[in-house]
Nucleic acid binder design. Sequence first.
DNA 1: GCCAGCTAGTTGAGGATGTCAAGGTTCCAC
DNA 2: GTGGAACCTTGACATCCTCAACTAGCTGGC
Lengths: 143, 143
Amino acid sequence: MTSLATSAPPVAREAWKLLFELARTKHRSLTAALVELELTAVQAHALRLLEPERPLAMSELADVLHCHASNVTGIVDRLEARGLVERRAGRDRRVKTLALTKDGGRLRERVVELLAAPPLEIAGLPAADQRALRDILARALQR
Amino acid sequence: MTSLATSAPPVAREAWKLLFELARTKHRSLTAALVELELTAVQAHALRLLEPERPLAMSELADVLHCHASNVTGIVDRLEARGLVERRAGRDRRVKTLALTKDGGRLRERVVELLAAPPLEIAGLPAADQRALRDILARALQR
DNA sequence: GCCAGCTAGTTGAGGATGTCAAGGTTCCAC
DNA sequence: GTGGAACCTTGACATCCTCAACTAGCTGGC
């Protein structure tokens, strides 16, 4: 649970405001890019989490997506209907294991690249700024 | 249109990855906080955009929310049903102008504070890091 | 061995968000 | 005036999300 700093110093608030704005901008451009792949945000996220060599159980996917199992059923239904994902029976026959198909693997690569690509706002920064940004964020997330 | 840098230097990608992670973490905690106000993300966003002294037309709200007018109808319906917002007829009677009610204004303040509060990851940084972060992000968004 | 209770996943109901097409009012330019 | 444009709403449909109830399968204690 990441709590909030309701009485934070002004500088932190300014930094956060900028960060918020950047995130929103990127979120929009990302959603637009996903439309061309005919994927929704959640579908793309699920695809990203399904690494080719490490199949996931439905319940594990629900965990990492932070949503209910019943929701995952529908999401996987749609991915499976498009031939991107397969449900396989595990040794424990209650568990259904999710594996990428060939098509799913190919599409996943595009999704991963899309998500990993920094927006031009970041990519266009001087190298020193990029390094400083990375280091500061690394410190921030270390807690 | 924020385009993507699909072939960006590794440092930019690392920085972006961290930023992405921070955004996701915060998004979750924010959604959780909004549940207690019985607001969804879009409702909170709409509320934030409705400044007390500057009423917005439905179409203007649709613009800033980046969604279709027909979608705004439903969102405003729900806010109005809760007594947070009022539709008023403008001089041009095609236009419906949105104004906050007393309750809406009070709730909006809490929402604005919630959105503006930086996560502890940022608030807990040394002051020098906060300043550097703010300055780098300001440069990034200047383009 | 057997059964009570747990776990995994699905189903169905219901709500919010989002798109699109169609329609009603109102305005404006000609 | 009248035709077209602008603004909003409505209805149909898809996705995402939760919850409650259900089925199938596993497991531990007797």
